[in-house]
């Protein structure tokens, strides 16, 4: 079997790596989004109380 620079196997492997990369990127974005939502909720919940104690 001749050795080609880009065997079909490389394409498969690249697809797999690309897929995993995108999944990890999406995961990071998800955690970031979740953090923003949770922190802004925390602020909304705590502010009136903080104002009341002043």
């Amino acid at each position: 079997m001749a050795i080609h620079r880009d065997h079909e196997l490389h394409g498969r492997r690249f697809g797999r790596n690309l897929g995993l990369g995108l999944v990890l990127g999406a995961f990071v974005a998800l955690i970031f989004g979740l953090t923003v939502v949770k922190i802004s909720h925390l602020k909304e919940g705590k502010l009136p109380q903080a104002e009341a104690t002043q």
Partner: peptide, 14 residues
């Protein structure tokens, strides 16, 4: 093990 066609693509994990 590294024969073509045997290597898993991303779709196989899906």
């Amino acid at each position: 093990a590294i024969d073509h066609g045997q290597e898993a693509g991303f779709g196989d994990y899906v």
